[in-house]
Structures are given as structure tokens and as C-alpha cells.
Write a protein that binds this DNA or RNA. Structure first.
Lengths: 337, 337
DNA sequence: ATGAAAGCGCTAACAC
DNA sequence: GTGTTAGCGCTTTCAT
């Protein structure tokens, strides 16, 4: 197999002026045709279109947006790409944005607020039509930037707090509480917890707080916990449950910081002949598709990630009235509890 | 919870001229300071920096790139966001790009060549520093656009064919062949196949071709197959294997179009007491982390997706000598074969 | 219906 | 070292 060598022959792409000249019209007329705005005779329209096609004209949006001070870029800054939940969100957002002729500039903060601030500045330098951020926790510097920019802002994924502009998400605290009440309702009393490097994942912390709160209301508490140092993963969940059980504290149910972790726990039980849910019940968070088709569907909280992405996109495009939408979540009563 | 109302107070962000004026220097001097280019006295540098900070100045890259005819955007067009493999790739690419001060414009083609062409045009209108595409199959229109633009191009994920410019990936055909030889080597002879809406996923087709080819060389063939109509998923894999077994054709091993599908098959077996691998062996593709921690690690082909993203990013930044890099793959001999 | 001309905010010569 | 100026390619009045 050989790669060609002639690809990057220096090419100067055609400009609007080139198209206008080739069509024998003025620049502004060519511009009108190419954007479908303003009255143009059918004859000129055809001429211009033909010239543009022939020259393989691709408009320069740098120039276009600079001149019109309006961009079709939307910035999206997410914490991570290692778990499917944020791609799910992106998918929903991207679909709506693309349908409205917008383009996504995507950046990943790795759950670091400082990095998020830098990325916000970087994205704002493109003068985007809007910006979507995950969560409510941003540095003061980031907030100042956002306020100064006047860009439409949508925060997502978290309604446990006050947003800066628009907001769509659900209450992680309540999700934790619902998980706890479900376990309590099923009769579990000795409940453990396995989480991941949780100090960085603020929403996982909120879930755990909600979980503990609901236990407390029932006169219970988490009897044993194991918190990993790395990111969430099936492996971490499996190891976490193993270590939790090795503590020797008797538990009859275990709450995991999310479905990846829970699936790891589930696999640990399968491997060691631990009966689910008789010997040990397992509960996750996110309602990942893959966990719904395990031999015993994982009990979990389904979060409408793609739908949240769609709503966020509509909000950022100014198509939603509401400034605040709680998109909720759904308890999945699976076979593991 | 109340949302504030004062966020979108119309704000006109400061320009370079504003900063220069506030600092009492010329525009070009301010520009030099803010970009750290050219000689500036420490005193003026401090003045300008202070003014910029005070005005919360965010440079306008539309203007900057237009003036300098050089952008720090890199376009990445992937087929899908529903499976973790492309986010894995994005993660690797994005990490390198960000480290070099570049930003990703990401678009999703949904495996549709026509849509990819539109997205290429759209991305090119931002005059990106480079473009990353998945696979080798593009419309003629897309190729013309790419050639005319002169943008540095990197194609990824597929070395079974000739690329347009730069290329990093692995041979899907060989991956299929390796899977087949592995199964043959373990003594399986009656081999089935479960795939997803495969006509759209060209690389899955190539894997299957490689798989069949290697069987043929051994005097074997796929004795039964089941191809779903939707995208790949755990559910589709589970249903697919169920239907395959319902055909009544005896098989001792099953090759799946990827790990999601294979995991579905694995779950089907667990649910129905089918012994793995004694009664049925299972083989996937991708080497997803989550499948490696199942009670029996899934036998699969690990594809270095994040590493491929890193290489692709380096290529697009012009930091790789080679025009063609085969990044290979790794046979994972798990417990399911 | 069409064209001329003035910017959009910045960079890159080029002077001083 | 620093300021002046001419564009980058487009959109947008404003004439005609």
C-alpha cells in the first residue's frame, strides 16, 4: 500500500471575490446568493451558483462571522470521555445543533475546575453562539469570563444548586435518596457503598449525600464503604466490592457510585458464587443499556442523558422558554435488588 | 431554586484596541504582549497585561485567524457516539491537541457518507489546521473538497486500502483473520456469526471478510449467521445469538461483530445455562475494558483506540514523519474461548 | 435587483 | 521597543 504524495499541493481556496468575478457580479450579490438572503434574480442566482460550484467555493466563516458578529459555533465542555454518559449527552446535543446548522466545539476538563476555566476562555475566543457546561461548580474566574462575554450559557446535569443562566438536569441528591429508599423498601438494612475517586466527581458526592440522608431518615447508615482512588470503571467496582467484603463487615446490599462500578461488583459476585440479590443486592446509577441486559438487569437510576443534551441544545439556541428544566430520572427496579 | 435574570445583560466584550488604549500603547504592542511574540519591555508588558486582566479581555480568534491565515482548530468527524470506541479515540486525539493549544471541532456522520461530505464542507469553512476522518470511504464530492482545501488530512481506523493523505489504523481484515485462526486453533469447527446493521459499518464488513477468508483457508466456513437491522448493542447481541441458536444449526463457537454484541451473547448464555466455552465459545472485537472483567474475560481483539487518537493528532499537527502508520491490534485470549 | 464601500478585530510588515 | 497602516474575506448599510 502506498500513500499518495501529491495531496498537499499548496492550494489557495477561492474567495467570494473570485466567485463574484467569475460570475460577473458584485461581491454583495454573490454573498446574497450564497446565503439565500435578499432578493436576487433567478438568472444571476444561477450564474453565481455555477461559478461557486466550478471553483469548489467553501465560504470562510472566520470572515463571515467576524463581519456579522454572529457565530454558529456552540462550545460544549464536558468533564470526561472515559464513561459513555457524556458521549450520550453529546449525541443528543449534537443532533439538535446540527439540525439547526450549528457546529460543536468540544473540550474535556477532566473534572478539573482550573482546566475548565482555561477551556472556557479558549472556547469563548471563537465567539460562540452559546456555551454548554456540565455542573454548577466553576471557578470565580470562569464565572467572570462567562458574565463578561454575554454568551448564552446552559449548565446541565445538576439541579442541586443555582445556575448562572439556563439550567437543565436532575437532582443527584434525590437520585441517591431514591436509591436508598428503594433498598430500604426491599428490606435491606446493612448497606455498604463502593465509590470511585469521588472528590472530583461532585455529582457522585451529591448522590452519596442524598443516599446517606435517606438512610438516616430511616434510622440507618452506611455500615461499610470503600472508595477507590482512580476513575470509575468496571475494574474499580470489582476491586472495590472485593475489598469491601474483605473488611469482614456483614452487608446485605451495596450501593455503587455508578453503573460501571456496579457492573464490576456484579461480576465479582458472579465469579465468587455470591447469590444476587439473596446474599447481596446491588444498585448502580445511570441505567446504562448494557447493564439492562445482564442475566439479572441491574437495579439502577436511569438518567435521560441524550434527552438532556437535546434540551440543552434547544436552550442554547434560545428555543426554550424555561430557564430551568428538571428533566428527572427513573428508578429501574431490576433483578439485582 | 431560582435562576438569576441578570446574566445576559448585553455585554460588548473588550477588543484589542480597548486594551491598547487603556494601557496607553499601540495596538500592535498590545498584540505582541498578549501573544508573547516579539520584543517588549517588561514595563509595557506589565501595563498591557494589567489592562487586559482588568477588561477581562478575551481575544477574538475569528479576527486573529483571519488576519494570520492560520487556525488552531482541528476538525474531527466520527461515525457515531453510541459506542465507546469513538469517544476513546477522541480522548486520545483531544488530549494531544489540547496540549498543543489546539481545539477540536467534532461532528458525527452517523455512518452516512453524504452526511460526512456536508460535515466536511461545514468544518472546512472554519479553515481548520487539519482534519481527521474515520475510514477510507468518502464520497467523490468529499474528496474533491478535501483536495481543493489543501488542509492536512488524517484518516484513521482502517489500513485495508489507500488513504488520501496521512493514515493511521490497523487492518480490520487481519483482525477478523486472527479471530478466526484463534478459534480454529482452539479446535472449534462449527462456527456462527452474529453481526449488526453491517452494511453501514464498512470496517465490520472487512473484519467479517477476513474472518471468512481465514476459515476458508482452513477448509471451513461460517455455518450459521444472524445479522441485525439496527446498530450494535448488548441487546442486539443477545437477541442475535438467541435467534442464531433458534435456527437449530449446531455451533460450537460464535464470532460477534464487536464486544457490545459479544457481551450480549455472553449474557444470553449466562441466562440460559449455556456453558462457556464448553458448549459455546464467544469471540468479540475491540477489547473493551468492561468485558475484560466479566467472570470469564471476553476473548477479543484489543484495538488501541486512544493511542490511535494520539498518533492521529500528532500527524495532523505535522509532528509525525510517516504518512502511514499501522498501529496494530492485540489478540486477547480470554476465558470465553 | 445590484454594486460600492465601510468596517468586523486582529496580525504582519514596515517605519521610526 | 513601539506605533502606523494595510489588509484577511466577508456582511451590511446605502446608493443607484
Amino acid at each position: 500500500m502506498t500513500q499518495r504524495d501529491d495531496f498537499n499541493a499548496l492550494t489557495t481556496s477561492a474567495t467570494l471575490a473570485d466567485v463574484a468575478r467569475a460570475a460577473g457580479v458584485g461581491e454583495s450579490t454573490a454573498s446574497r446568493v450564497l446565503r439565500g438572503k435578499g432578493a436576487v434574480s433567478e438568472r444571476t442566482r444561477a450564474k453565481v451558483q455555477a461559478a461557486a460550484d466550478k471553483l469548489a467555493y467553501v465560504p470562510n466563516r472566520l470572515a463571515g462571522n467576524l463581519a456579522s458578529t454572529g457565530s454558529n459555533l456552540v462550545g460544549i465542555i464536558i468533564p470526561s470521555l472515559t464513561n459513555i454518559v457524556f458521549p450520550d449527552f453529546l449525541r443528543g446535543a449534537n443532533q439538535v445543533l446540527e439540525a439547526h446548522g450549528h457546529q460543536s466545539v468540544i473540550a474535556v476538563s477532566e473534572y478539573e475546575a482550573e482546566r475548565e476555566e482555561r477551556l472556557i476562555a479558549s472556547v469563548l475566543s471563537w465567539r460562540p453562539a452559546g456555551l454548554i457546561l456540565v455542573g454548577l461548580d466553576h471557578t470565580e474566574g470562569a464565572k467572570a469570563l462567562l458574565r463578561a462575554s454575554g454568551t448564552r450559557l446552559v449548565e446541565v446535569y445538576d439541579t442541586d444548586g443555582v445556575g448562572l443562566d439556563r439550567l437543565v438536569g436532575f437532582s443527584n441528591r434525590q437520585a441517591g435518596a431514591v436509591a436508598a429508599r428503594h433498598l430500604i423498601g426491599r428490606g435491606y438494612r446493612r448497606i455498604g457503598y463502593v465509590g470511585h475517586r469521588i472528590h472530583l466527581d461532585i455529582r457522585a458526592v451529591k448522590r452519596f449525600e442524598g443516599f446517606e440522608g435517606a438512610l438516616r431518615e430511616a434510622g440507618l447508615s452506611v455500615v461499610a464503604q470503600e472508595i477507590g482512588t482512580g476513575t470509575s470503571s468496571v475494574e474499580a467496582g470489582r476491586e472495590g466490592l472485593k475489598r469491601l467484603l474483605a473488611q469482614g463487615i456483614e452487608i446485605d446490599a451495596c450501593y455503587f457510585s455508578n453503573d460501571d462500578m456496579a457492573l464490576g461488583g456484579y461480576f465479582h459476585c458472579l465469579s465468587h458464587g455470591i447469590q444476587i440479590p439473596n446474599q447481596l443486592a446491588i444498585f448502580g446509577h445511570n441505567g446504562l443499556d448494557l447493564a439492562r441486559f445482564a442475566p439479572q438487569p441491574l437495579s439502577s437510576i436511569r438518567t435521560p442523558r441524550a434527552a438532556m443534551g437535546e434540551v440543552a441544545a434547544r436552550m442554547v439556541l434560545g428555543q426554550e422558554q424555561a430557564k430551568l428544566i428538571d428533566i428527572g430520572f427513573e428508578l429501574l427496579e431490576g433483578g439485582t435488588t
